[in-house]
């Protein structure tokens, strides 16, 4: 039931974005036409009934329940993205790189957590996910400015920054 609700809300919000501005100055002003809203409700219900097992696996409902945390996560992620871009800018201009592929074990169990972490660190300073697995906890990361680290904890901190913790809080 929760997966159905989650898919329904997601599909309906996307639909509302797509039909924004179809109104004729009626009940909803120029934002929405009421016929579009009724059609959107029906389409979203049908889509949620068909796709709830695809999009809303039981383990993914945690992200839905922790939605406020996701809103806090977005500015953190954007700041990291801005920093990553400045770093790439410096590297393109100076040409100083020290690349390498490192193995980390962030200790995430669910696929959703791994997906969030992998996609986040691809867009954050100096790191790019090369390989991740369904059944193993390890991930292989291309690191453009390798720092020498001794323990795994130091390495995870160097590669992911705070994102390993964020992925755990969002998905597990």
């Amino acid at each position: 039931m929760l997966t159905f609700l989650m898919t329904f809300i997601g599909v309906f919000l996307l639909y509302l974005l797509m039909v924004l501005g179809t109104g004729d100055g009626g009940t909803f002003g120029y934002l929405f036409h009421w016929e579009e809203l009724v059609a959107g409700l029906i389409i979203s219900l049908v889509a949620a009934a068909i796709a709830r097992t695809v999009l809303g696996k039981a383990e993914n409902t945690k992200l839905f329940v922790r939605f406020p945390l996701f809103l806090v996560y977005i500015p953190v992620w954007f700041a990291a993205l801005a920093k990553a871009n400045l770093q790439v800018a410096v590297m393109v201009i100076t040409g100083k790189i020290r690349p390498g592929i490192v193995r980390i074990e962030p200790g995430l169990k669910t696929n959703l957590g791994k997906t969030i972490l992998a996609n986040s660190i691809t867009l954050t300073p100096g790191t790019l996910t090369v390989d991740a697995f369904d059944d193993r906890e390890e991930m292989y990361i291309h690191w453009i400015k390798v720092k020498d680290t001794k323990t795994m904890d130091e390495r995870i901190k160097g590669v992911c920054g705070s994102f390993a913790g964020w992925a755990r809080r969002l998905a597990e």
Partner: peptide, 26 residues
């Protein structure tokens, strides 16, 4: 990011070595 990850994985699995690499756990 998903597309970038797919390209990186295809490159590494077909044996493209990272150049100037100081470490290669893969």
């Amino acid at each position: 990011p998903t597309g970038a990850h797919a390209i990186a994985r295809a490159a590494r699995r077909t044996g493209v070595e990272p150049e100037q690499a100081v470490i290669d756990d893969y």
